[in-house]
Structure formats: structure tokens, C-alpha cells
Nucleic acid binder design. Structure first.
Lengths: 226, 226
DNA sequence: TCTGTTTTTTACATATTTTTAACAAAGATA
DNA sequence: TATCTTTGTTAAAAATATGTAAAAAACAGA
């Protein structure tokens, strides 16, 4: 979820629309008050924060975000009007992760958001998953079973990643489709089954660790299967 | 402490003022002589160096800075008046860490300074990358395969540099575009593929070390490919 | 300006992956 | 047991990603 705090309704709607169209989830806010309120319900992955806002300005909001330990690590991209460069400079000092200046292209915005998310994720997400005799190196995009490398296709890799990430919890086909294929996927849920099959096959004995939970979905863990 | 060597008094004062206002410490110099004198008293963390200067020009000063072991590792950002001075700075093994061309915004300057400081502080980049029979001399901007020199274009060189720097990790096309082309680039991601092709071709046998990870991106390492 | 070089775009062939669909097998339910 | 539902399996069809070549565009230098 991405929050966009921007008083100009046109820009705000364009941004929210674009982000949603790109597969991200976005919500817009016209001022700091409504944004702060929403923050209590749901924590966004990233905040787009305009500097010029009615009431409390963006720099103050940024400062408050960075002061609270709850919201401290939410990445923030500052949005500034051109010509007002001085503001941006201060924004960078206050702990913003990046900035864009108006007028900005939607493409640029999207790639900046992706870049910031990538940078901040790196510090959060593990670089490696290990389960039984399976080892996944996420950075290098490699999978080993008993130290023998495996060649997985993109979907197989992502499927295994989710199963290993949420080990021991059952993942429904819908959940997997949503996380890997994205919201807009309209195909059959059976697609998942087919990929599970090839994945099991490629994993060999280790494939038994992928357990079918009938009527629900799939689950992975050392003690399952076999 | 940041030193700014710039003959235009207006620009110099604006820069010094902005940097001081941003929490950095800055001093300005109108020519090379006074700058060199100040250098004996205090070593700056970074130098902003205009190319066009009365008396000794910026490139000569840069050369002298890089010749002395005392001042060798001070990062330098060159300030150029024209776009075509770019090559003088980057191409000719001058050792500048970055450059900005006039007219530049104060915000851009500040973020470049921060970027350079971040780079030089943290990952003091190697001067040379070696992988298999490929050797890249970053300073001299030269590439050798089995000690035979190779002529690479700018983009090819940067592409190879990233691949060798982040060896074994898969770099997505988006990531490469962002790191080499910059955020503003709005072109096709296929552009990367084309450069990968020419790079592989020029590398000959060694080109096999660039592996395609389908659905993800490219990766380089001794054990890949072949 | 012109000229040669680099970079990007475009188009198409090819290889690979992904999805669909059909049927078999296994569980569940009555 | 008979029937219905869910999952496993397979193969073919569809979709997609990448390699490649060549044209077009952008760029740099004279």
C-alpha cells in the first residue's frame, strides 16, 4: 500500500490511478490530517509526500514520521514544486529517501518508487531461505537441493519463494495467484496446481516437503509430506 | 568542510551559502592559487572545481590533486560550463568523481555532493575488477580479455562494470536502466538487451560469462554460462 | 554544416514458459 | 457402493521473453 499526500486533486488522482494501474495499491490524501488518521489504521509501504500542503506542511509531517519509532522506517519520497529547490534540500536532510519535482512523469515516479522500495527492502528481507535440504539464494536467483543447483523458471522460483517464506502456513491458490501473478490475473486457479507439479518434480525427494492441504491450498515445511 | 573553486563570485557565494545552510561547511575560492594555499591548512572532505578558471585551469588543479598522495583521495566534482567538456572530465582519466554542468540547481548540486560523499565513504570502489579472463581498469577506462585490449563504448563499459561489480547477483533490466541510464530514461527495456548483445560479441568467449536469467535479468560470474 | 560513431528503436525469428483443457486418480459424502 | 469434488498428470495451444539484425535517431567532433 502506498499513500500519496498531495493537495492538488488532479495530481493526486493521476498518481493514485497510475500506481493502481501499475499493480501497486495506492490511496490519496488531500492534507496531513486525513493522512495521519489513516496511518493509524494501516501502515503503508511507502509515502509520497508533497511539501506544500494546507495546514501542516510536508516537512513537518516528514519530521513527525521520522520521530515515531512506529513510522520511522516507512520510506518517504518528497514531492516538490519546481523553483522551490531550497525545500527539497532540507527534505533530504530530514530523512526523505528520495524526491521528485513537479512536473514529473508518471514513468519516472514509478521507477523511483520501485527503486526506493528495492533499496529499503534489501535491508528487511532475507537474502536466503533454507528449509531441509533446499537452499534459495534470492539475490543470485539460485536454488540448491543438497548443494546441487536447480534450474527453475520464473513462476516456479516465485512459487517456491512464497512457500518458503510463509513456511508452515497454508497458502491458498487465490493468495498465491494474487501475490505472484498480481491482482489483475483472471485465469484458472488450476494454473497453480500445474506449477506445483513441475516444482515438486524438479525438487525430487525434497518435493515431498510441499504438502497439499485438501480444499485449502499448499503448505511447506520440514515436517510436512513424506 | 567543502571547498568550492569558482571564479564567478555570484555562483560561488550562492553555492557556499546553500551548502552552509544545508548543514555542510563550505568555503569559496576565486582561483587555484588561494585554493591551494588553503589546502595546506585544512583538508576538505570534497572539492567543487570549476574547469574555467583564471590562471591555472580546473583540469590542471585536478591533475595536481590526484598526483599528490596527500590529496589523492579527496573526492572532486567538476563544474563545467558546456556539455562538451564532459569528455574531458570523464574520458581522460582525470579522476573526478562526478561533474555538474552549468546552469545547475542548488538542489541537484547538494544531492550530487551527498551521493559522492556516500560513495567515497562507504564503498570505496575498487580500481580494478577481474573475473575469469576479463580485467577492467576503471581508472584508465580500459578492458582486457586475456590481456588483449578491448574497445567498448560508454554504455557497454558501464554495463560491464555493473555486471562485474555485482557479480553473481541477477541485475534486472530496470535496475540496470536506473543505475546506468538514470531515472529519467523513458525508453524501452529492450535497449539493455541490445547492449548486452554487443557486449557479449565484443567479449568473445568471455561473453559466455554473462548469463541470461529468463524473466529476471542478467548475471555475471565465472561459473555461469558456457 | 557534414561525417562518423554511438545509442535507441523496430521488427522478426526462435526458444522457452505459461496456460488451458482434458482425463485420471484420489478423497469425501451420502 | 455410487456420486461428487478436488487434485494430479499430461500434452497441446497460447503467450511471452530473448536473440539478432538492421534501420532510425541522437550525438560528438571537425
Amino acid at each position: 500500500m502506498i499513500y500519496c499526500v498531495e493537495d492538488d486533486g488532479n495530481i493526486r488522482e493521476l498518481v493514485v490511478y497510475t500506481l493502481n494501474a501499475t499493480g501497486m495499491n495506492a490511496r490519496g490524501f488531500g492534507d496531513g490530517k486525513s493522512f495521519m488518521k489513516a496511518l493509524e489504521e494501516e501502515m503503508p509501504e511507502l509515502v509520497l509526500l508533497d511539501i506544500m500542503l494546507p495546514g501542516e506542511d510536508g516537512l513537518h509531517i516528514l519530521k513527525r514520521l521520522k520521530e515515531s519509532s512506529k513510522t520511522k522506517q516507512i520510506p518517504v519520497i518528497m514531492v516538490t514544486a519546481k523553483g522551490n529547490e531550497y525545500d527539497k534540500v532540507i527534505g533530504l536532510d530530514t530523512g526523505a529517501d528520495d524526491y521528485v519535482s513537479k512536473p514529473f512523469g508518471m514513468m519516472e515516479l514509478v521507477s523511483r518508487i520501485k527503486a526506493v522500495l528495492r533499496r529499503t527492502k534489501q535491508n528487511q528481507e532475507a537474502e536466503e531461505y533454507v528449509l531441509g535440504n533446499i537452499r534459495m539464494d534470492l539475490k543470485c536467483h539460485e536454488v540448491f537441493v543438497d548443494d546441487r543447483p536447480l534450474t527453475l523458471t520464473y513462476k516456479e522460483f516465485e512459487l517456491l519463494r512464497k512457500l518458503m517464506k510463509y513456511r508452515k502456513t497454508v497458502l491458498t491458490r487465490d493468495r498465491l495467484l494474487e501475490e505472484i501473478w498480481g491482482y489483475e490475473f483472471t485465469g484458472e486457479t488450476r494454473t497453480v496446481d500445474v506449477h506445483i507439479r513441475t516444482l515438486r518434480q524438479k525438487l525430487g525427494n525434497a518435493g515431498d516437503m510441499i504438502e497439499t492441504v485438501r480444499g485449502v491450498g499448499y503448505r511447506m515445511g520440514e515436517n510436512y509430506g513424506e
